[in-house]
Design a binder for these strands. Structure first.
Lengths: 255, 255
DNA sequence: CATTCCGTTCCGCGATACCGAACAGTATTA
DNA sequence: TAATACTGTTCGGTATCGCGGAACGGAATG
């Protein structure tokens, strides 16, 4: 059914997450619906649902079955374990308030960027890539800042695995181009994203590193391209972010 | 191995969550550590970790294996699916700001209360039961408000399953006492918690219901018992919460 | 009453998850 | 340098158990 039948893995767990992820992206499903859509027998789905229900990872609602909040519980522990999470949260909120735009903090996991914090400023469009959602590293300012700031060996591994299919007409489409850009970012200290991931969206990002030099994540500010331009975009925002990242690094080092 | 071998459930999934929950409450573990502590063979843990790692639900860090942020991703979808989540979030923040104390929004799931939103006021002690963490329904103001406001049949089911072991010396210890209290809450419209869950902590809670009359969750404000007393605690806070809950219900009904 | 959804249960077979033990790195010890 | 003690890894062999399919029951719609 699912392709990669690596013999050294647990099939039942694969199918279970197959089911869970399907349920997660819907709003209330029935057993038969899942069975037919995913190509499992009804009894299989039923057995998995029984298990998941008993453990609290799936709940029954008036509109059907849904993923349970227990996922949030374990997911939250993963989130707060990120280094300096509270300080970072405050800084993100400050940046959003000062700039009026949207600010976020992204960490890398499994070759993708993951939203850990996010805050909206006054003028920010409240379009919603929620906490926990994932973005490509090579097509976002925070992602590129992280790649530029991390250990070269590891960064090369991640770049190796990147899917360079263009997302917009401005997306970086090959690794050479990306390496050049990362080099430039290392020299500057900050990164730009000009509609590389979403049309009409510009952003600037700065990496945050721990005392051992290892990158923790990256701050970024994003907004409509018509506002994100000129010296505000190219000088003032980078300066603000660099300063904030610096403060963060100091605070994290002393904690 | 694990006791409840309900034949209609998937064993491999049980062991998987057994492992995940163990990993979640630690900060970096090794395979052998998990194997010995949980009583599985090393190879079993290894196989599960391989599976989970490949799917992104467990990650390798310098300090060992940890639960991955992918749990946050699916957990977050469960969270934002809660009715009126954005409006509720704003209200919780408003309440925290106005009162200076800690405010939260709790929903019921699987017979427990789950934190969905939480905000700190100026004076609030920032002790941290994070988003997603669970509290007993019968020993918290929000929990009791929910129980009082929900369908009697369902509430009876939940009460049936409650473990009435005392948490503090003020905890409600039997169902009769609880039923009386719920009756009083229904008449008043709001609930109190006087050190029933945590010594030194008082709280007041009000349920929020949807247009169909079904309870969605409950708002509550909590703080040190020395501040939470007198007319402020017994009249002004309830009034504020009732007003907010009312607004919320109207907003949710019209959306 | 008939139809069509839903969830549930049962059973038999083949796949597979499990354990145990041997293997292989890596760091810390003598 | 060698030995120890940790890691994580791999490999079979066996009994388990997860799987599909079909038959059942229950609720809602016609």
């Amino acid at each position: 059914m699912t392709q990669t039948n690596d013999p050294a893995t647990v099939q039942a767990v694969r199918t279970m997450f197959d089911i869970v992820e399907y349920v997660a992206e819907r709003d209330g499903v029935t057993i038969t619906e899942v069975a037919t859509d995913l190509g499992y027998a009804k009894s299989t789905i039923h057995r998995h649902f029984s298990t998941l229900h008993e453990l609290g990872y799936i709940v029954e609602t008036p509109t059907g079955y849904q993923v349970g909040l227990r996922f949030l519980e374990v997911g939250h522990t993963a989130r707060v374990r990120q280094r300096g999470h509270r300080m970072v949260k405050e800084k993100v909120e400050n940046i959003a308030a000062e700039t009026g735009e949207r600010a976020q903090f992204i960490v890398e996991e499994h070759g993708e960027g993951v939203y850990i914090h996010r805050a909206f400023g006054e003028r920010a469009v409240r379009t919603d890539p929620g906490i926990g959602s994932r973005i490509p590293l090579h097509a976002t300012s925070a992602g590129k800042a992280i790649l530029a700031s991390m250990d070269e060996k590891r960064s090369a591994e991640l770049i190796e695995a990147i899917n360079f299919d263009p997302i917009t007409e401005f997306t970086i489409t090959d690794s050479e181009q990306l390496y050049d850009e990362l080099e430039a970012i290392r020299e500057r200290g900050y990164s730009f994203n000009r509609q590389e991931n979403l049309n009409g969206l510009h952003a600037v990002g700065v990496a945050v590193s721990g005392p051992d030099g290892e990158v923790i994540g990256a701050l970024s500010v994003s907004g409509p391209s018509h506002r994100m331009q000129g010296t505000w975009f190219e000088e003032e925002l980078p300066k603000l972010l660099l300063g904030t990242a610096n403060e963060l690094e100091l605070n994290i080092a002393h904690s």
